[in-house]
Write a protein that binds this DNA or RNA. Structure first.
Lengths: 216, 216
DNA sequence: GCCCGGTGAATTGTTCAACAATAATTATTG
DNA sequence: CAATAATTATTGTTGAACAATTCACCGGGC
């Protein structure tokens, strides 16, 4: 039997999280307590705890007496996300001095394959998600669950910034091949090659995302 | 005027955090809600939120229907902490390609000086805290507040493991000089030298901490 | 017309009390 | 003594209440 039925507060947080990710909520939009207690059918205390979870994950922001709003990333925030990505993903790649465990490679290849399928189906949102999942797998090479959890929340924030722009198609397509290339280098136990490909990838990706913000 | 009086829940979390850190609570000890609502004079809801904060920081653990306990680190946990330290601190050191900003250097030197003072005063707990503060400053070189917050919680977990052993004197003393040496290399903008010194430092420190656990 | 302060509604912060669900403990039975 | 049933303690969740704060609205003075 399952260890425990999932907690009510977790289910509430899940539903709000997907609501944010699916784009039903705009960045900066306020999350009013009364509204969501009705919609989710949970008590205010439980809901507030769910809010706190979202804030902890960087998907929402809280200001005392002013409530919770969907996080609205600034250019500075995007830069920080990529600073973190560079630090962690490059660290991870550097640890690949011996061949990667087969099951790890399989997980990574599955991400790329899923992204390719989604691209064929023109589901660009899914493409982005699967690509980010691959990069989560890369960080897993470091071998720390705590780091994985932290990085997952960082990637979730990045996905949030995807939601801003409408033309995801043009944005997502070119990156697929580069993901695959990085993975190939990793499979060949070529950390230096993977690192340089990854660094270029991150630089370009950051540039592309920052271009959408009004010039400073 | 100050932006806001601090939230009740934060003050409660603070008091419990120091209680844990000062060693008043042993690892594995259970934190009963009723007991702490009395001691802190806050409501159960507020207290539960404070509990969750501690869990998020890795200072406590939560199991559904079984309450919250003070985190009890295993050898595996210590290994993970050092895995994270290696990834982040070495990443940080690698970013030092241009001279470090003077105020940053000042903060770091202040940590070493404070640790030295504490050593003179035989306050070994303080020595450990200041040394860890230095390593927190190192990670700040990366330039990400989110990463800083995450790393701070990792260091707090490590401090928790210090609380286990009684003879902190023998443990803390030798590391002071090595901290200073690493800082010198950083001040000279010598990332490679700092990296190798830091790597050796972390390896030795991890070994020393793991030695206290029963052999596998 | 526009700035200014005050009034009141709406929202959030915190507490309290109750009940349900689960785990731990004790009592009971064979 | 072992296994099981009943009891108790603790946590999970809810609902309502009240305080504190923000915000929008409104009227008066310049």
């Amino acid at each position: 039997m399952p260890p425990h039925p999932p907690a009510v507060t977790d289910r509430a947080a899940d539903r709000m999280r997907t609501a944010i990710m699916e784009g039903g909520l705009r960045p900066g939009e306020q999350l009013v307590e009364a509204e969501w207690t009705d919609r989710l059918g949970v008590s205010r205390n439980t809901l507030r705890e769910a809010f706190r979870q979202l804030c902890r994950e960087g998907l929402a922001e809280h200001q005392r007496h002013c409530g919770v709003t969907v996080r609205n990333l600034s250019a500075e925030d995007v830069r920080e996300i990529f600073t973190i990505r560079r630090a962690l993903e490059l660290s991870a790649v550097a640890t690949v001095t011996t061949p990667i465990a087969p099951h790890r490679l399989d997980s990574m290849r599955a991400c790329v394959a899923a992204a390719a399928d989604a691209a064929k189906a023109q589901d660009w949102r899914a493409v982005g998600s699967h690509s980010l999942r691959l990069h989560g797998e890369i960080v897993r090479l470091i071998g720390s669950p705590q780091l994985d959890a932290f990085f997952a929340s960082v990637l979730a924030q990045l996905r949030l910034s995807f939601a801003i722009n409408p033309d995801e198609a043009a944005f997502q397509a070119p990156w697929l091949d580069r993901d695959a290339a990085i993975l190939d280098r990793l499979a060949e136990t070529d950390p230096a090659g993977a690192a340089s490909a990854l660094r270029a990838y991150l630089d370009d990706s950051e540039r592309g995302l920052l271009a959408r913000f009004p010039a400073p």
